[in-house]
Design a protein around this nucleic acid. Structure first.
Lengths: 188, 188
DNA sequence: GTCTATACAGGGATAGAC
DNA sequence: GTCTATCCCTGTATAGAC
């Protein structure tokens, strides 16, 4: 792996673990096994490197979600597969955590990939839910847009609850809860 | 207001805005209009002051939630009142944001108030939901514990989506979505 | 491309005067 | 109780040699 690759990967890890404010160029260099000179040769500075890292993480997150969304089964089955997918719950969401970083949110360039990721997720889930409703899988009263946001929020909030409790239990509860509510829509 | 009071209040604001890592003693002192000496006279250091601030914020959050929970109306009405309460959405949750602070989560003393707050919230909502089910407000199939976690997660995740989009819209969508799902439980 | 040297502000705290 | 001085480390970079 090239030095610039290693720098990006190290930055991705550190942003996930410690956020933007908590990640120093020095820490990045050490983890990547690169010197100062290398880093400032390949990137103009911390924001530039962070941007590359955030873009890649966002892209990866969308790709992984799409795997479940375009998988086999009914809409409810695909949404369940997405929600129940193996996740490193206590580490939280590498994209969602950035929303708590004032320096990320304040910089339009850094916030953009985060914004786009959640916008895409919500739209994709809304389309799925609308398709399910069309097929009679869900009650006509179900609001696809609102419910899509709810589903994404349950995941993001589930991570928060898990980290607060230092246990993945509340995350799984929250997912179970929203799936139960969706199933009731189904069973009517 | 006493100096020590002002230090705590300034810390609360800064923790909310910038998190633990992003908040320096110097910034706290400046906002409080206090010198270094004052701060280190009243508190042993940054963690000590943060603990006082976090405790107070957590307490306040529980008190505000309890206002809605013990208010008038059916269970669904009280939960709706809680979810629809006026909130400063783009600022996020002052307690939930701490879960993204590695230094807070790593320190049992700092994490404790955060943990207790969400544990209390989930238990309180679960009790309400169980009461509603008992009264026939909700389907017998509703799982109070899981649904309680879902409701709390929707709020916490709603904040994440709002900050990502730099708009309170996704927050309100997510709330609307979960309320819709709860109402369907009701209308059956 | 990578290294080392250098710079300078800020973080976080202690010491001692008042 | 509060103030100022001082301390050492880290953050974030720039400069220039190799």
């Amino acid at each position: 792996m090239s030095t610039s690759e290693r720098l990006i990967e190290s930055t991705r890890e550190l942003l996930w673990e410690r956020g933007y404010v908590g990640t120093s160029p020095k820490a990045i260099q050490q983890r990547a096994g690169a010197g100062q000179g290398s880093m400032y040769h390949h990137f103009t500075g911390k924001p530039d490197l962070a941007l590359a890292a955030i873009r890649r993480t966002a892209e990866e997150m969308r790709a992984k979600a799409e795997e479940q969304f375009s998988g086999p089964g009914t809409v409810l089955e695909r949404i369940s597969a997405y929600l129940l997918r193996e996740r490193d719950v206590l580490r939280g969401c590498p994209v969602g955590r950035l929303t708590q970083d004032p320096d990320v949110v304040a910089d339009p360039a850094l916030r953009a990939p985060v914004d786009e990721t959640f916008a895409w997720l919500r739209a994709r889930l809304a389309a799925l839910l609308a398709e399910g409703r069309e097929r009679g899988e869900f009650a006509a009263a179900l609001d696809p847009d609102a419910t899509a946001s709810t589903v994404v929020a349950v995941l993001q909030g589930g991570y928060v609850l898990a980290r607060a409790a230092d246990s993945s239990e509340p995350f799984h509860r929250a997912v179970e809860g929203v799936l139960g509510l969706l199933r009731q829509q189904h069973a009517r």
